[in-house]
Nucleic acid binder design. Sequence first.
DNA 1: TATAAAACCTATCAATATTATAGGGAATTA
DNA 2: TAATTCCCTATAATATTGATAGGTTTTATA
Lengths: 138, 138
Amino acid sequence: MLSKKTKYAFHALIYLAQHQAQGAVLIQEISEAHQISHKFLENILLELRKAGFLGSKKGKGGGYYLIKKPEEIQLSKIIRLLDGPIALLPCVSLNYYEPCEECKEETQCGLNKVMAQVRDETLKILENKSLADIIEAY
Amino acid sequence: MLSKKTKYAFHALIYLAQHQAQGAVLIQEISEAHQISHKFLENILLELRKAGFLGSKKGKGGGYYLIKKPEEIQLSKIIRLLDGPIALLPCVSLNYYEPCEECKEETQCGLNKVMAQVRDETLKILENKSLADIIEAY
DNA sequence: TATAAAACCTATCAATATTATAGGGAATTA
DNA sequence: TAATTCCCTATAATATTGATAGGTTTTATA
């Protein structure tokens, strides 16, 4: 299951994409529109900015805005940033890999094989779908 | 990520499958073989029994044993039993469905669509792979 | 039939992760 | 210079997961 953090991130990104014309958008505005705690959302937007998805402007008239095109924002990247690994086991994670404690030969482990397959199919979708794709039908 | 509970369950099931000949197997034996806390494993085996995967025998010479063929134990069933939903969002979960709080029309939500797709691909694998499959290469 | 072995069951504790809040700092605008 | 808004870090609250504890019931067997 995706965490609230990730869900909020998606909502915020969608909101920002749909209000690109208006320039910088206040945290406040997004948090009210989606009923998210202002401060919690603030932390999330901060992470998204540090990761290069958003830009920000301080002071009056400030706020957040997308600095990547919605087409260029892969869903997989957002999930990894806020939720961590997409894989079901550390030993098949591409970005958060950790060796299996039990297996000597991971490549010969049946569980590893299946979970690697799940990971591949999941990534095939999440890497090829972008923010733009989910907005289309929103 | 799968919980330890689920991982332990898989290890235990694999162990039981590989020691089917010996009849009932002690919790102790499995917990030692896999370095799992005896009591924690006990709870897990209990759940597996209640769910119909295992049988048990009390008293001396007792223990746990598989009552389903490894071929008939879908990985998806084990994960759902111990970890809950496989889907990434409640609104696309088949077994633990909960309506989306924001969407009026889930069918028209882009996030819902993508996550349903992920769920389908994941299940396509986890429902078609059984305990027997992961033992083969173990 | 007494004893020991083993699962059964439920409660509770501990550790960790998630969600949320708090509050002063720094930059920007007017 | 004052108001606004994001920046940053710490901490508190809550939920989930992982682990432990201890008595109960059943069963084999000596």
